[in-house]
Design a binder for these strands. Structure first.
Length: 569
RNA sequence: GGGCCGGUAGCUCAGUUAGGGAGAGCGUCCGGCUUUUAACCGGACGGUCGGGGGUUCGAAUCCCUCCCGGCCCGCCA
């Protein structure tokens, strides 16, 4: 691989070579980094190869990063979970791996977010909090702004704790790192010093990417000692003293002009921040980053400039890069202001964490749509992927991928695990009684006497997810067994047929018999079978359609069914 | 306008790295489960592999070109 290839964030080669090594447990750190590329069914292996080729010191460091915003949403986890898979592959190969996620929390708040997530991750409007406190703090670092919910020490800490909580929910061990801390504890000080020492190089390099860089540009933004805002006018640098002189001139950000206070003062190298274009490669250096995935928005501008600055200003070796495509939600771009957003807790109400991890285990280069309406398709694909791991799917390609990726997707590989098909789980969600749900699943052959209790319990958990999905989408599975008699009128024929059926049920016949009897009864009363079923669905679901009715009724309490068929309760 | 990434069946996608049979699941349709009513089983239908051109005995795959979509190309991150 040439140096150019290594610098190309799109080169996510899945190798070339033999095609199967038969042995998934290949190696404890001494794997084939002999330059001979091997074919990989799982992209994370190809990335791990590239990382290993750098001969990194342990711990290998994998990083992601985010700028604090109002809401931590699923989009932020693209980066975290992609990094996680590479981390896991490297751990399997015997490396110690540290996965960090930096919060760019020394950045100034540029505009007040329209939506915020409360400490539980629920999205709330600005009206729920002291919006004025946010507005008064425009221009200050996120770490200097109070938590709008009054719990954490700052806005930044609030946001970071949300991300951390979501990562925990997904079982991704990630270490949150605060940029502000890196400045405060002196970690960044040598980087600031170097950028200022080599200010001419800094200007020349960054000038190739940003027009505003001129001969007065200084790659350091002090925090004003008077008003606390991040400023951009440095008037002098004293390398010996380790300070800069500045004027608080205010700044323009996103069309907003943030007023400076005019204060002129002195700041140390810890009392300010590097512009992000320097800060990013600076992080690579001080954290020793070996691999970093990033969204496609960074592929063309940020990444090349970061490499350039790392190599030609800061003397830092850039990490192995990887561009990932964005995913859309219900066909539209993620946007918290437009409300097209889903949070981790929200999605975990609808499916298991392993399904979500599976989604992010798929090829990062492909843009995908997370369609909540069709979530059953995603879950079905996961189930198939899981079966492929256990050799139960006749699909060579899928099986090769599953054999490699599946163990990283699930918390624990357990062959006896049972998955109820998602839409079937949604059908079970039409009733509330857990025993009834289990009985229906048993009748359908999903469990047998050998199914361990834990597997039954786990499988039934999906019913709650599918139920939440049916309710949230209000789709064709959103029926609920009616505990009260729905208001309905029936023809005399239909009424008589219902009475007949009630007698049949009262006689103690089972579900299968009831199903058969429904046809007989309808025929006997000379009514359309469809009309008769419709009457049944009306009585039990207050709907015109539903699940296979006879077998369903067979599982319910006999008295309840009889009374309902007689329209008595 | 330039650059990068993507475009395969109605839907969701695999296959493109290394040229050789166009595939899967779901949906649809038909049939089966004594008996149209969404859970189970079988079968069928379904694609100019975005269009065109080229290389090749042979192209979804390589090359050129065009179309469409996303991103980047002032600042910020």
């Amino acid at each position: 691989m040439s140096a150019d290839d290594r610098r190309d964030p799109h080169t996510l080669s899945t190798g070339g070579g033999s095609g199967d090594d038969g042995d998934a447990e290949s190696g404890t750190g001494d794997e084939t980094d002999d330059g001979e590329p091997t074919h990989h069914a799982f992209w994370a292996d190809a990335v791990a190869d590239a990382v290993a080729a750098r001969d990194p010191d342990d711990p290998v460091v994998i990083k992601g990063g985010v700028s604090p915003s109002g809401v931590a949403h699923l989009g932020n986890f693209n980066e975290i979970i992609r990094g996680y898979f590479v981390a896991e592959v490297l751990r399997e190969r015997g490396h110690e791996v540290r996965q960090v996620f930096t919060s760019d929390d020394k950045d100034p708040l540029r505009k007040v977010p329209r939506k915020l997530a409360d400490p539980d991750g629920n999205i709330v409007g600005l009206g729920e909090v002291d919006a004025g406190a946010l507005g008064r703090n425009l221009g200050k670092p996120y770490t200097d702004i109070p938590d709008p919910f009054g719990e954490k020490e700052s806005y930044a800490a609030h946001f970071a704790s949300l991300l951390k909580a979501d990562a925990d929910r997904l079982g991704v061990p990630v270490e949150m790192v605060s940029n502000t801390d890196l400045y405060a504890d002196g970690t960044f000080e040598p980087v600031v010093r170097k950028a200022l020492e080599r200010v001419d190089d800094a200007r020349e390099v960054l000038g190739q990417y940003q027009d505003k860089v001129d001969e007065t540009y200084v790659p350091f933004n002090p925090v004003c000692a008077e008003c606390g805002k991040v400023t951009e006018t440095v008037t002098a640098v004293d390398l010996e003293a380790g300070t800069v002189e500045y004027e608080c001139t205010g700044m323009e950000a996103g069309g907003n002009e943030i007023e400076g206070c005019g204060h002129a003062g002195t700041a140390t190298f810890r009392e300010g921040k590097l512009p992000w274009r320097f800060e990013w490669p600076g992080q690579w250096g001080v954290l020793g980053v070996d691999f970093e995935p990033f969204g496609k928005d960074h592929a063309e501008g940020s990444w090349p400039s970061g490499v350039d600055i790392a190599e030609n200003v800061l003397d830092v070796e850039p990490p192995v890069p990887m561009v990932y495509e964005w995913f859309t939600l219900n066909g539209e771009a993620l946007s918290s202001s437009a409300g097209n957003i889903v949070t981790v807790p929200e999605i975990l109400d609808l499916l298991e964490p392993e399904v979500l991890r599976y989604f992010f285990a798929l090829d990062p280069k492909k843009a995908r749509d997370l369609n909540l309406e069709r979530l059953d398709q995603l879950v079905d694909r996961f189930d198939r992927f899981e079966r492929a791991y256990f050799g139960e799917v006749d699909d060579e390609e899928l099986t090769r991928f599953a054999e490699r990726a599946y163990p990283f997707v699930v918390e624990e590989v357990r062959e006896e695990r049972v998955r109820l098909p998602y839409t079937f789980a949604a059908v079970l969600g039409m009733v509330e009684d857990p025993d009834f749900r289990e009985q229906l699943a048993r009748d359908e052959g999903h469990f047998d006497d050998d199914t361990p209790d834990w597997a039954v319990a786990d499988a039934l958990k999906r019913v709650e997810k599918a139920r939440a999905w049916a309710e949230r989408m209000d789709n064709e599975y959103n029926y609920r067994l009616q505990t009260e008699l729905p208001a309905a009128e029936f023809d005399a024929d239909v009424a008589a047929a219902l009475d007949d059926l009630a007698d049949f049920v009262a006689a103690g016949n089972d579900g299968e018999a009831i199903q058969g009897e429904m046809y007989e009864t309808a025929r006997r009363h000379d009514i359309e079978v469809s009309d008769f079923f419709a009457a049944g669905y009306r009585l039990f679901f207050d709907e015109t359609q539903g699940p296979r009715l006879g077998e369903f009724l067979g599982e319910l309490e006999t008295d309840f069914v009889v009374d309902r068929l007689r329209r008595e309760a």
